[in-house]
């Protein structure tokens, strides 16, 4: 876990500050190992997912309201990478289950585990890890492919864990057949794809503004 922090200003600003361009012999920046920055990023993104979940939802009348929650989940993975991303979502889920109202609809407590949407919630840490893992690969793509690659990473997370686990638990809790559950769960897929595209665009901007966020990961 290493993190480099050059100055109070974001590096993007440092570039326009009157710092002289380095000669060919400029020594490479030294990364300071910083658990502190990792803890701050993990806790802050857990809080960010909470705000995304609690922000006014788009009502669907279904069992699971549409919020920016899944946007927050995949964005966390893409921006923090798999390890810190998964930790942030573990922290988010733990804080919510401990009773702090950070889940969608400002709910919290262990009771959420028994709701039909519990599967989606439990899938979040793995989803952030998968989005983050593929996101690291996406970082190596040529610049003009970066946003589509990040979108692919986010969508892999949706299709590999969020929807399978979410639909399975919902079907079980509501006593639906597999096909009924699939049909009910598929309602959320288009919305998730739009949110994934949004997350890819925003993550690309964040990684450009803070180029050292994923360095060494």
């Amino acid at each position: 876990m290493s993190e480099h922090r050059p100055d109070a200003v974001p590096v993007a600003d440092a570039a326009v500050a009157p710092s002289h361009a380095a000669p060919a012999t400029a020594p490479a920046p030294v990364a300071r190992t910083s658990v502190a920055t990792d803890v701050a990023l993990v806790a802050t993104f857990a809080a960010f997912v909470a705000v995304c979940a609690v922000l006014p939802a788009i009502p669907t009348g279904g069992a699971v309201p549409i919020t920016l929650q899944t946007f927050g989940v995949v964005l966390t993975g893409l921006v923090l990478g798999p390890r810190r991303g998964a930790l942030a979502l573990l922290l988010y889920v733990a804080v919510g289950l401990a009773g702090v109202p950070v889940f969608s609809g400002a709910t919290g407590g262990l009771g959420v585990l028994a709701s039909p949407s519990a599967g989606y919630l439990l899938a979040f840490p793995a989803a952030a890890a998968i989005a983050g893992g593929f996101g690291l690969l996406a970082r190596r793509a040529p610049a003009w492919w970066r946003v589509p690659a990040l979108f692919g990473a986010a969508t892999a997370a949706s299709l590999l864990v969020v929807h399978p686990l979410g639909i399975a638990v919902m079907g079980w809790r509501l006593g639906l057949s597999a096909s009924e559950a699939l049909a009910a769960g598929a309602v959320f897929l288009p919305g998730d794809l739009i949110k994934n595209a949004l997350a890819a665009v925003v993550a690309a901007a964040a990684l450009r503004a803070f180029p050292d966020l994923l360095r060494g990961r």
Binding site: R5, T37, T44, F45, F48, A206, F210
Partner: peptide
């Protein structure tokens, strides 16, 4: 949010 998180880490 990212900028504040890094200030907080500092």
């Amino acid at each position: 949010v990212v900028g504040r998180a890094r200030d907080l880490g500092e």
